[in-house]
Amino acid sequence: MLTLEGLSLHADAVRTVVQDRELSHRGTEAVLLTIRLAVLPGLVLTLLGPGLGAAVLAVQLAVFGVYMGATFAPNHKGMPLVPRDTRIDFLSRQVLTSRNIRGGRPVDWLMGGLNLQVEHHLFPSMPSGNLRRAQPFVRAHCAEHGVPYTEAGLLESYGIVVRHLNRVGLGDRDPFACPFVTAHRQG
């Protein structure tokens, strides 16, 4: 399903630029989006031909979707879900449902700054390059107010994601036990 996430993100970007009349720098966004979604694909199709060009664009879009999913998943999967109707303050809702990924500048670069998901949720319009500067203040504020601030290493967070998906998707069953074989096994 993640292979389609890139398509979904591109469609959301177009929808936002077309529908959000209050979007700051809307003209610039429209120009950059046109370059990304029309000019660059046109260039690829012209240089590689329609068959190979379409294949390259399809693979690029699928890889982009998987990459974005691999960036989002370790920040949220396995974190508590807070029901919408629960009365909880903004800080607690954002911090309790997000996890930061440790690893410094290399992980910042690899994940486009979205490894600092707690700060991103608290300050969604802050440029990702500034999230690391906000982190010590957010961490201290959370400690002062008794709000748990969750961090994990990149591999550790993927382990959390896999365990969570197995627990939810398999109902804590052995992921290697085949139901068909179990049902038809004699003795």
Rank of each mutant, 00 (worst) to 15 (best):
residue 82 V to P: 07
residue 183 A to H: 08
residue 83 P to F: 13
residue 155 L to A: 13
residue 164 H to F: 14
residue 130 N to H: 12
residue 134 A to Q: 12
residue 120 H to S: 14
residue 37 L to Q: 05
residue 38 A to S: 09
residue 45 L to M: 05
residue 93 R to S: 09
residue 25 H to N: 08
residue 110 L to E: 08
residue 163 R to N: 08
residue 23 L to R: 01
residue 120 H to M: 13
residue 86 T to D: 14
residue 149 Y to G: 06
residue 53 G to K: 05
residue 128 S to P: 10
residue 49 G to I: 09
residue 78 G to M: 01
residue 57 L to V: 07
residue 21 R to P: 00
residue 150 T to Q: 06
residue 88 I to L: 10
residue 113 G to T: 12
residue 89 D to M: 04
residue 125 S to D: 14
residue 155 L to C: 09
residue 113 G to V: 01
residue 99 R to Y: 02
residue 148 P to N: 06
residue 68 M to Q: 10
residue 113 G to F: 00
residue 79 M to C: 07
residue 2 L to I: 08
residue 91 L to P: 03
residue 44 V to I: 09
residue 122 L to R: 07
residue 121 H to Q: 06
residue 55 A to D: 05
residue 97 T to G: 11
residue 132 R to P: 02
residue 93 R to T: 10
residue 147 V to L: 01
residue 75 N to S: 09
residue 115 N to Y: 07
residue 66 V to E: 08
residue 122 L to C: 06
residue 130 N to D: 04
residue 94 Q to C: 07
residue 108 D to L: 09
residue 69 G to P: 09
residue 40 L to F: 14
residue 31 V to R: 06
residue 21 R to I: 06
residue 71 T to P: 02
residue 20 D to Y: 00
residue 37 L to K: 04
residue 91 L to N: 12
residue 85 D to G: 15
residue 33 L to T: 00
residue 16 T to W: 00
residue 5 E to Y: 09
residue 36 R to F: 01
residue 171 G to V: 01
residue 43 L to Q: 11
residue 27 G to S: 09
residue 111 M to I: 13
residue 24 S to F: 14
residue 48 L to N: 07
residue 17 V to H: 00
residue 86 T to I: 05
residue 71 T to L: 06
residue 175 P to K: 05
residue 180 F to Q: 13
residue 174 D to F: 07
residue 127 P to E: 14
residue 73 A to M: 10
residue 73 A to N: 03
residue 70 A to C: 11
residue 163 R to K: 15
residue 81 L to T: 04
residue 72 F to G: 02
residue 72 F to H: 08
residue 107 V to M: 05
residue 99 R to M: 07
residue 61 L to H: 10
residue 13 A to Q: 00
residue 166 N to V: 13
residue 157 S to H: 09
residue 55 A to H: 03
residue 135 Q to E: 11
residue 37 L to W: 07
residue 60 Q to R: 12
residue 2 L to S: 10
residue 78 G to Y: 03
residue 76 H to C: 00
residue 71 T to A: 05
residue 179 P to Y: 13
residue 133 R to S: 08
residue 121 H to C: 11
residue 63 V to M: 15
residue 5 E to K: 13
residue 15 R to C: 02
residue 61 L to M: 14
residue 16 T to N: 02
residue 80 P to K: 04
residue 165 L to F: 15
residue 169 G to H: 14
residue 176 F to S: 03
residue 77 K to S: 06
residue 119 E to I: 11
residue 153 G to W: 11
residue 116 L to S: 13
residue 136 P to F: 02
residue 112 G to H: 06
residue 9 L to M: 03
residue 117 Q to C: 03
